[in-house]
Design a binder for these strands. Structure first.
Length: 669
DNA sequence: TAGTTTGTAAACAATA
DNA sequence: TTATTGTTTACAAACT
């Protein structure tokens, strides 16, 4: 990404010795707050189609705006439809259906069609209930759809008229583009409507009967289609302006307005083999499906492009007495030519776009439903950390989707004071570090946030370094890996590299809790948990029970894994207690320090016993074996042998005694 | 108010 | 020679 390359640029700049790099880093840090590429490339569907800086709206922007509005309403409708499956509405059809005393469970009502299959519904409801419900929902949805699309199209029509009046002095071509955009918007709504109904039909919620298929679906466009709309397509294909060009233009507009439809940038290069009336083969459009499902089967005298005595070709409302006349009209007016091909392409793009948008909206809806569904089991936002991939964060919950399915809102995560947000000058994070939740859970919770938002994490360098190290199975990292962890986890650390890297190195050297170990591969850094705990004595202001739990939690939470492995054989009384010797509880608490235990009042990880152990005992032993040529290096660097370098042979009873002496006292002080 | 902790900057040395 | 890594000192700000 841009950010990476930018940071690499800074990094490659002369930095280390003379501090030149740090100067550049400072200048960088002081100024461009939030103007980084991270923010721009952040999660977001909002990052699409940035509007022009000029005040006037281009047709593409207008179209985009309208698409957004339409989608918004459609989304609401979808949600409404999902939640209102049996909600006691005031609808007429609903009331008629309620005569059959259909009582649908609330749980059913809360489910979306995506969540509740017809089979499940059949299990829940009796056949009569099911049928009544289906009929009722069908009528309700059709009516709602009708109303909704009517409204939207009326609105469009109004806007179109306004545009026409305003654009009277404008060149005809520009006006044509706008009209085309409007027409396309209209088409999109039609398609959305049809597609929605089709999806409902697929799910068995709506049985698209022929009469209904040709009812609202076909009457709607007609009912609300403004009289001047048919001229749009005709005008668009007027002589002197090749339809292909306008479509290309439109294709560009689509590219600009499509949210994620990258395929629009490359419209189909080969014109699909067009016959006179059918749509292109293989095109998964609603037209095709609808034709297959309804029109062709039951009424051979009908045509998907013909309804209510009108030609349903986009933009054409030519009145045709009968089907024969319509066919004639179709063959003459909509024959295989450039214009028809172009219109067909537009339609294809419309359908494509709608499919993508529908998929996105469905995905969003499912994520929302999933989120709402799991909410009751989510007692406290911060007390229950969430799993992030393989991170060894203590948890026991299902991680809510943080990917595209659930876009991360770049808001300040809860619990962060304003001080945690980076601003000018050095950030003094102690307050936030003190008040914030445990770093692991906080990180887990806001992993995506910190990853994408250019926000300074409210943790000290020491705690971050420790977290980085503890996240690895080996509990050791090279300096460069620590760097990478910082940049990977935090967008904030993708800039000012000289500054924070210096700080990292400084912290590594400064704090005794970070132990440098010579490995075969080179030097790696480990965490001496005991030293880390010493660093900042916890404040035991909670209830006696809390303090007690805290102490016991600390007793093994603060221990390095390897050290625990060694201690497992020792006679250390506390560690020999059943709870401590329980591999499950031990491992689940392993990454926690007193800081991770949270501030007083926060739930202790004792309730994390239900969460699965994060590391298996073999992993501990794996950690033990890491350092091959260590001990002497350690000893002459640090006065006391850290428990970080986990060689069982070097870790012995003296350590145990030391721990036995120090631990309770230091934690209680 | 003094001491501590933390962040930042910088100088310097060792090493790849 | 250069970049990276590691150590150390100094200073300022926030906090205890």
């Amino acid at each position: 990404m841009m950010v990476e390359s930018a940071s690499e640029t800074i990094r490659s700049a002369p930095s280390g010795q003379n501090g030149v790099g740090s100067l550049s880093g400072q200048a960088d840090g002081g100024g461009g707050t939030g103007a980084t590429g991270t923010a721009a490339s952040g999660p977001g569907r909002d990052a699409v189609a940035a509007p022009d800086s000029n005040g006037e709206m281009s047709p593409a922007e207008l179209l985009h705006l309208q698409q957004q509005q339409a989608l918004q309403v459609a989304r609401q409708f979808l949600l409404q439809q999902a939640s209102g499956l049996s909600s006691p509405g005031n609808n007429d059809s609903k009331q008629t259906a309620s005569a059959s005393a259909v009582q649908v469970p609330v749980s059913v009502a809360m489910m979306s069609p995506q969540m509740l299959t017809p089979q499940q519904m059949q299990q829940i409801l009796s056949p009569s209930q099911l049928q009544a419900l289906l009929q009722q929902q069908q009528a309700l949805m059709l009516q709602q759809l009708q109303e909704y699309y009517k409204k939207q199209q009326e609105q469009l029509h109004l806007q179109l008229l306004t545009q026409q009046q305003a654009g009277k002095q404008q060149p005809k071509e520009a006006l044509g583009n706008k009209q085309l955009a409007f027409q396309q918007q209209l088409l999109q709504m039609q398609q959305l409507q049809q597609q929605h109904l089709l999806s409902l039909q697929r799910q068995g919620l709506v049985s698209l009967q022929p009469s209904q298929a040709s009812g609202p679906l076909q009457t709607l466009p007609q009912a609300v289609c403004p009289t001047d709309l048919p001229q749009l397509w005709k005008g668009e294909g007027a002589p002197g302006q090749p339809a292909e060009d306008s479509v290309k233009q439109e294709g560009l507009d689509l590219t600009g307005t499509a949210t994620t439809a990258t395929s629009f940038a490359t419209p189909p290069k080969v014109s699909p083999p067009l016959s006179h009336h059918p749509l292109p083969n293989g095109q998964p459009t609603v037209h095709t499906s609808r034709r297959d499902s309804s029109s062709h089967e039951e009424t051979p005298s009908s045509h998907p492009l013909y309804g209510h005595g009108e030609c349903k070709w986009p933009g054409c409302e030519t009145l045709c007495e009968d089907l024969g006349q319509f066919i004639k009209h179709l063959n003459t007016e909509h024959a295989l030519d450039d214009r028809s091909t172009a219109q067909c392409r537009v339609q294809m793009q419309v359908v494509q776009q709608l499919e993508i948008q529908l998929a996105k909206e469905s995905e969003r809806l499912q994520a929302m439903m999933a989120h709402l569904h799991m909410r009751p089991s989510e007692p406290k936002p911060f007390s229950q950390p969430v799993t992030v991939s393989a991170d060894p964060f203590p948890d026991g919950l299902v991680h809510p989707p943080t990917s595209a399915a659930a876009p991360v809102t770049p808001l300040r995560p809860p619990g962060l004071g304003s001080a945690s947000l980076h601003g000018g000058g050095p950030a003094r994070r102690r307050s936030s570090d003190k008040f914030c939740s445990p770093i692991s859970s906080e990180l887990a919770q806001n992993h995506e946030f910190y990853k994408n938002a250019d926000v300074r994490p409210p943790f000290t360098y020491a705690s971050l370094i420790r977290q980085a190290i503890l996240e690895t199975p080996d509990r050791q990292l090279t300096l460069n890996e620590i760097y990478n962890w910082f940049t990977r986890m935090f967008a904030y650390f993708r800039r000012n590299t000289a500054t924070w890297k210096n700080a990292v190195r400084h912290n590594l050297s400064l704090h005794k809790c970070f132990v440098r170990v010579e490995n075969v591969k080179g030097a790696v850094w480990t965490v001496d948990e005991r030293e880390y705990q010493k660093r900042r004595p916890p404040k035991m202001t909670g209830s006696p029970t809390l303090v007690k739990n805290m102490i016991s939690g600390l007793s093994y939470g603060a221990l390095n894994a390897s050290y625990q492995a060694a201690l497992a054989e020792s006679s250390f009384p506390l560690l020999n207690s059943p709870s401590v010797l329980n591999p499950g509880s031990t491992s689940s608490l392993l990454p926690l320090s007193h800081e991770d235990m949270g501030a007083p009042g926060e739930p202790l990880p004792s309730n994390g016993s239900s969460s699965p152990p994060r590391l298996s005992p073999p992993q501990y032993s794996h950690q033990v074996q890491v350092k091959e040529e260590p001990a002497e290096v350690e000893e002459d660097r640090r006065p006391g042998v850290p428990l970080g370098p986990p060689n069982p042979s070097t870790v012995g009873p003296p350590e145990d005694r030391e721990l036995e002496e120090e631990l309770p006292g230091e934690e209680l002080s």
